[in-house]
C-alpha cells in the first residue's frame, strides 16, 4: 500500500476541513490513496467539534475583531484555536481496514507518531487517553477521529506557540471544563513546544513526517483535480455555510 504525503501547506478553515472530507470521499470511491497531510490555518481560525454549541464555545465578536475564522468540524471533540504561526495540524485518512478497529488503540497508534516526533526533538511527551498528548502534565496536542463509510480519519494539532490572551478572546472556556476558567488556569493546563524546545518549525515538520511515515511506502503528492473539485463543493455546501456552522 502506497501512502500519499502532502507536505505542509496553508489553507483557510473551510478548505482545510473540506480537503479532509474530499479525500475521505475519494478513498470511499477508491479514487484517492491513503493520505497523510500537514497543514496550517491562514487566516487563524477556531474549529469547533461536530456536536458543540457555537454560542457556548466561541466569542464571535472576538473572532470578528481579530479576523479569526470559525468552522464546524465533522469530527467530535472540543473547540480549538488554530493560530496561523502557532501550530501544525495533521490528518491521517485511510480505509478503515488499515487502522485498528479499537478507537483507543487507533488514537494510541497515531498520537504515538506525534509523541515519537516530540521525543526525537528532546521533549518528554506522553499519550493520555482518550485523545491527548501531554508534556509535563500539560496538553500540547489534541486530536479527533471519525469513521464513516469504512473510511478512517484522524486529525490533530501540535501547539508550537501559545498566545493565551488571543485564545481567550476567541474561545469561551467554561468553568466546568477548566477549573477557574481564567488565563492562569489555562496556562497551567496547556503548553506549547516553544516552552520546551528551540526547534524550528521546519525541523518539527521533518520529525513529524519521519514518525508518521515510518514503515510505510510513501509517495509525495498533492491534490487531484477531482479532490479539489469535491473540496470546493464541500466548502460551499458545508464548511463555509452558515447553516452548518450555526447548526447547534
Amino acid at each position: 500500500m502506497i501512502w500519499r504525503l502532502v507536505r505542509f501547506e496553508y489553507q483557510n478553515a473551510a478548505m482545510n476541513m473540506a480537503l479532509d472530507e474530499a479525500v475521505s470521499n475519494g478513498i470511499e470511491r477508491s479514487t484517492s490513496p491513503p493520505t497523510i497531510r500537514f497543514y496550517g490555518w491562514k487566516p487563524s481560525a477556531v474549529s469547533i467539534g461536530r456536536f458543540q454549541s457555537l454560542k457556548d464555545e466561541v466569542d464571535l465578536a472576538g473572532c470578528k475583531e481579530l479576523g479569526v475564522e470559525v468552522v464546524r468540524r465533522r469530527t467530535g471533540g472540543g473547540a480549538v484555536f488554530h493560530d496561523t504561526e502557532g501550530e501544525i495540524t495533521y490528518s491521517l485518512i485511510a480505509s478503515e481496514d488499515l487502522i485498528s478497529r479499537d478507537i483507543n488503540a487507533a488514537y494510541q497508534e497515531i498520537c504515538g507518531y506525534v509523541v515519537s516526533a516530540l521525543v526525537a526533538l528532546g521533549v518528554e511527551a506522553h499519550f493520555t487517553p482518550i485523545n491527548d498528548i501531554l508534556v509535563g502534565g500539560k496538553k500540547i496536542s489534541g486530536s479527533a477521529q471519525s469513521r464513516r463509510n469504512s473510511v478512517f480519519l484522524q486529525h490533530g494539532t501540535l501547539l508550537l506557540d501559545l498566545d493565551v490572551k488571543k485564545m481567550f478572546r476567541v474561545l469561551r472556556i467554561s468553568d466546568a471544563k477548566m477549573a477557574g476558567g481564567d488565563i492562569s488556569s489555562a496556562e497551567e493546563r496547556v503548553t506549547s513546544l516553544r516552552a520546551h524546545s528551540d526547534a524550528s518549525k521546519e525541523s518539527v515538520l521533518a520529525e513529524l513526517q519521519k514518525a508518521f511515515t515510518s514503515g510505510k511506502q510513501i509517495s509525495y503528492g498533492s491534490w487531484s483535480g477531482t479532490e479539489l473539485q469535491e473540496a470546493n463543493r464541500l466548502v460551499s455546501k458545508r464548511y463555509a455555510n452558515e447553516e452548518w456552522t450555526r447548526e447547534r
Binding site: 456536536f51 454549541s53 457556548d56 467530535g76 472540543g78 479527533a144 464513516r148 471544563k177 447547534r248
Partner: peptide, 12 residues
Amino acid sequence: VQLTGDFFLEPD
C-alpha cells in the same frame, strides 16, 4: 432536548 458537547458520536 438538545445535547451538545465535546464528545464523539458515530455516525455523526
